[in-house]
Nucleic acid binder design. Structure first.
Length: 476
DNA sequence: TAGCTCGTTGGACAA
DNA sequence: TTTGTCCAACGAGCT
């Protein structure tokens, strides 16, 4: 009987998992997770490790219900580990779901070649994206570089495959296979903030489906209207599940479309459009691998970004900038490993256009602290906000965090949730506490500079500095 | 081919 | 309070 190794990575689920599904149909199955040195462009971020740990525990439990366990292996390079496993269980095939970040694409090609040369059958399946970056191209045969035409094309032409069911049964390999302990991978010890993550997130395939269902029934209809307001529960919170593959994008796609009958199509279309941004990020990265390191608009390679992690950097990461909306966002990130998208833009704009730090420093911090850290989304969005990416926000568009705060959190509900020290502030002053008269401060029980910091730099003036630098750069 | 339109997420200012 | 215009310029993508 044939034996197939299923190599898991960012597809940690049993439903709509084509590699697992087809392997189970084929014969005996060995599900494997490999944590090798060649895992991709970056080492895993610390919060992502926590998420991964939880996901793997959950996947293992699900597989156990089928009577098979998840084998965990570490090593220097993946291909050696796989070759070893092939020998151990006399596997004649290795299946996995395609990955799209450029270093993984290169590695997977290498792995494929080596395995085939040993006479092992290799099959790769699609489920990580809705589209194949090679197949959606403009009429001139080039990759898309602007989102809207890309989205129109995707919506019109891409036939999203229906999600596959979970395998009915999975037959194990029948021999004992050594597995390393999940605890020994070092995913938890270096990480000290698990407590609030544990409270906030349920990490499993079922939790992903449940979360999505709740969003679809309660928030989808108003999504277009509510998504921009961080004090509302208006977004799906599905991103970390997508990033690790506890749910697939086509499961999301069909759940949303299926539940949309009777609901405003505006909410549905707006949400599908958001989902398409994930596609677009991978489209861009797949065709422009250098964007991981370099600003796409090359003029920005000469921009005088700050590169050293100074006190300003520390205050930004700690949520002690003195601008409440920014600090609320950065503290939410610290506590639960997630930040509302609107606030991500505000803190990133402040970081790159007021503090003038290189977008890469911010991108790295997000990478390390987000449960939904995803290489393509992270890099694309940071370059977009910084104004140096493909189809970005124009550089001269500097967000004014105070105006953003007043517009999207008028009563300061979101601010107060994450900054309890400002709880007693009247909403008139909660966006800029430094303007509060002394009696207001007294009543709120806040001494500025002690209980809550003064703004680290002047808001409007710092925005103008960035513009000046940019203008000068263009003249040279 | 050449020309036309448009660009996820803004802000200042005027009316 | 709300709405419209301009800001600077360019290149993608369509017709």
């Amino acid at each position: 009987m044939s034996v197939t190794i299923v190599w898991f990575w960012n597809d940690l689920r049993v439903s709509d998992n084509p590699a697992l599904y087809h392997a189970a149909k084929r014969g005996r199955v060995l599900p494997v997770f490999i944590y090798a040195e060649d895992i991709g462009v970056r080492k895993l971020g610390s919060v992502k490790k926590w998420w991964l740990y939880k996901s793997l525990v959950s996947l293992n439990e699900t597989l156990k219900k089928y009577g098979v366990g998840l084998v965990i292996r570490t090593g220097f390079d993946t291909v050696s580990v796989l070759k070893e496993l092939v020998r151990e269980v006399k596997a004649d095939a290795v299946y996995w779901n395609r990955r799209f970040d450029p270093t993984m694409v290169a590695r997977d090609e290498r792995v494929k070649k080596e395995l085939i040369s040993l006479g092992v059958k290799v099959e790769c399946f699609d489920s990580f994206l809705l589209h194949d970056p090679n197949e959606i191209l403009t009429s001139t045969g080039k990759p898309y570089a602007v989102f809207t035409p890309f989205w129109k094309r995707l919506r019109k032409d891409v036939n999203v495959p229906r999600p596959l069911p979970s395998p009915e049964r999975i037959q194990g390999v029948g021999v004992r296979v050594r597995s390393e302990k999940l605890e020994d991978l070092g995913f938890l010890p270096e990480f000290k903030r698990c407590e609030s993550l544990e409270e906030f997130w349920k990490v499993s395939e079922d939790a992903a489906r449940e979360r999505l269902r709740r969003f679809v029934t309660s928030s989808l209809e108003g999504y277009e209207r509510d998504r921009d307001f961080p004090y509302l529960d208006g977004t799906s919170l599905i991103s970390p599940y997508l990033a690790s593959g506890l749910i697939s994008p086509r499961q999301v796609w069909y759940e949303v479309i299926g539940a949309s009958e009777g609901k405003s199509s505006k909410g549905v279309e707006a949400f599908l459009r958001s989902l398409a941004w994930r596609e677009f990020s991978y489209h861009l990265l797949y065709h422009n691998p250098s964007m991981l390191e370099k600003s796409v608009k090359s003029i920005f390679e000469r921009f005088p970004w700050r590169l050293e992690k100074s006190e300003f950097y520390e205050r930004w990461t700690a949520g002690l900038t003195g601008i409440p909306i920014i600090d609320a966002g950065m503290r939410q990130l610290r506590k639960v490993g997630w930040m509302h998208n609107r606030v991500r833009m505000i803190v990133a704009s402040w970081f790159t256009k007021n503090l003038l730090f290189h977008w890469k420093l911010g991108e790295e911090w997000f990478w390390d602290t987000l449960v939904d850290a995803d290489i393509a989304n992270n890099v694309q969005n940071w370059q977009w906000v910084a104004g140096c990416g493909i189809d970005p926000v124009p550089f001269f568009r500097v967000f004014n965090p105070i105006l953003q705060s007043r517009k999207f959190d008028p009563k300061g509900v979101y601010i107060k949730k994450w900054l309890p020290e400002l709880e007693k502030f009247p909403s008139e002053y909660v966006h800029e506490p430094w303007k509060a008269p002394l009696p207001v401060l007294k009543r709120a029980g806040v001494e500025l500079g002690k209980d809550y910091p003064l703004p680290m730099i002047p808001v409007e003036e710092s925005g103008r500095t960035a513009l000046e630098l940019y203008k000068r750069l263009r003249k040279d």
